[in-house]
């Protein structure tokens, strides 16, 4: 879930982040839950958020960084307004993940891990989104599942994401 943060100042976000931290204050074991929520709030995990989380939970900044880089879910860089997650699980691979990533590359010049220059889309690869029956599949913004993908259908499908 990538939420737009353009109209919300960092100060406002920092206040909301404090609310997220509150139940876990001085509880290092809550680190992954807090980072997950923080990323859902801010869209990624900038330095200021890392510092705030580290201080709130009583862990070192180094540990926070270590956890962020270990887990694929976390991102240190800003992402596009919409996140396209193409499934490269076995079922999808067997039925044409390559075709989908190629279509996105041809259409948007976008490769996994990259964001379009206009910040509209970020592309990532995920493993199985539970729609194996409709492979190949992808999920946009963590909620819209699109299955039975065919390259020709992709341009139209992306139109609804501004």
């Amino acid at each position: 879930m990538v939420e737009c943060s353009c109209n919300t100042s960092n100060e406002e976000l920092a206040k909301q982040l404090d609310k997220i931290i509150d139940p876990y204050r001085d509880k290092p074991s809550g680190l992954i839950q807090v980072l997950t929520k923080a990323q859902n709030l801010v869209g990624y995990l900038p330095k200021w958020a890392q510092v705030q989380v580290a201080e709130g939970l009583g862990v070192s900044l180094q540990d926070v960084y270590g956890v962020i880089t270990f887990y694929a879910f976390f991102s240190l860089i800003p992402r596009g307004r919409h996140k396209i997650s193409v499934c490269a699980g076995t079922a999808c691979y067997v039925k044409g993940t390559k075709m989908v990533t190629k279509a996105l590359r041809d259409l948007l010049d976008l490769r996994p891990g990259q964001t379009t220059p206009d910040s509209r889309f970020t592309l990532e690869i995920v493993r199985c989104i539970g729609a194996c029956g409709l492979a190949p599949a992808m999920i946009i913004d963590g909620k819209d599942v699109h299955g039975r993908l065919e390259p020709e259908l992709i341009p139209e499908l992306l139109e609804q994401y501004e």
């Binding site: 490269a88 699980g89 076995t90 079922a91 999808c92 691979y93 493993r127 199985c128 539970g130 194996c132």
Partner: peptide, 12 residues
């Protein structure tokens, strides 16, 4: 954690 990339029994 259901790690097998191509399965979603546990999720169900």
């Amino acid at each position: 954690d259901e790690g097998d990339p191509g399965a979603f029994m546990d999720r169900s």
